[in-house]
Amino acid sequence: MALFDQRPAYAHEPTVAPIEHRFSPYSDNGGTILAIAGADFAVIAGDTRQSEGYSIQTRYARKVWQLTDNATLATNGFAADGKNFVKRVKQRLEWYEHAHHKPMGLKAIARMIQTMLYGRRFFPYYVYNILGGIEEDGTGAVYSFDPVGSYEREACRAAGAAQSLVQPFLDNQIYFKNQTPAPGAEAFVPGRLPMATVLGLVVDSFTSATERHIEVGDGLEMYVVMKEGRQTTDLTDEGQLPAGMKVEELGSMGEGRGEKTFLVSMPLKRD
């Protein structure tokens, strides 16, 4: 029998699992955004509710921002990052216009946003961005981004709390997924729907999402960017807007090519 215990002193101490300390500066503030491109217009929309979990922080928080006469940006995710990112994008656009005496084109804005996001990839903006507007050739376009800068041009895209509900609906109605043309009818072509149909799809998307998600609601803001040459009445007459909608024509933000941007707003469910 040993006269002393040969085990080291620390072996007698109770084993305690290490405690991991972690800090996250991010938060998800809910809401949903979407954009749809038409032949010569684009619609970019978002709700106005800002929340954290089941707590509603405010019932009016903008998620869609007009950048130029032909470009509008929607942001969703961490609200503070979104506001800061939009501020920096607008700052760069102002520098560009002072240096080149013309506004930046939509495709160039998309590339600039990609560069800005990728430059912060190790501590990224926790924001999903959707850029919509009119290209130089007069066609409507939508560019979607992930938080680290990967992006692509699409006919439609949704992001946010209700993305899992809204995106399949848009895939069916805009890309005509799981739809078969009638015998003898022309094949479906994405991005060729009339403005009235697109506005109706946006309203249906958000009213449905509001019924299912507590993080979506209160108000809907739709920015409609129209190609140069389209009349103001194209929106009010062709759109056949539902009762309760307000239409406001936004002023020019510089020396553009003549595109027009309208803000169409309506209330959503407040529960």
Rank of each mutant, 00 (worst) to 15 (best):
D5T: 07
Q6S: 15
Q6A: 15
Q6M: 12
Q6K: 15
A9P: 07
Y10S: 13
Y10D: 11
E13Y: 12
V16A: 10
V16K: 14
I19V: 15
R22A: 13
F23H: 14
Y26Q: 09
L34N: 07
G38M: 03
A42E: 06
G46A: 10
T48Q: 02
T48H: 06
R49N: 01
Y54T: 14
R59Q: 14
Y60F: 15
A61V: 07
N70G: 11
A71M: 08
A71N: 13
F78M: 13
A79E: 07
A80R: 09
G82R: 02
G82T: 03
G82F: 00
F85P: 03
F85N: 03
V86G: 01
V89H: 02
E97T: 15
H100K: 14
H101D: 12
P103Q: 06
P103K: 08
G105Q: 04
A108G: 06
A108C: 04
A110G: 15
M112Q: 10
I113R: 06
L117N: 06
F123Y: 13
Y128T: 14
Y128G: 05
I130W: 03
L131N: 03
L131Q: 04
G138A: 04
G140I: 03
S144H: 11
D146K: 02
A155L: 09
A155R: 11
C156L: 07
V166D: 01
P168W: 00
F169V: 05
D171H: 00
Y175I: 07
P181A: 05
P183N: 03
G184F: 00
V189F: 01
V189E: 08
G191F: 00
R192N: 12
L193N: 02
L193T: 01
L201Y: 09
L201R: 01
F206G: 04
T210A: 15
T210G: 15
H213T: 01
V216Y: 05
G219I: 09
L220W: 02
V224L: 09
G229K: 02
R230K: 10
Q231M: 12
T236S: 12
E238G: 11
P242G: 08
V247K: 02
V247N: 04
E248Q: 08
G251Q: 05
S252E: 11
S252F: 08
G254P: 05
K269N: 12
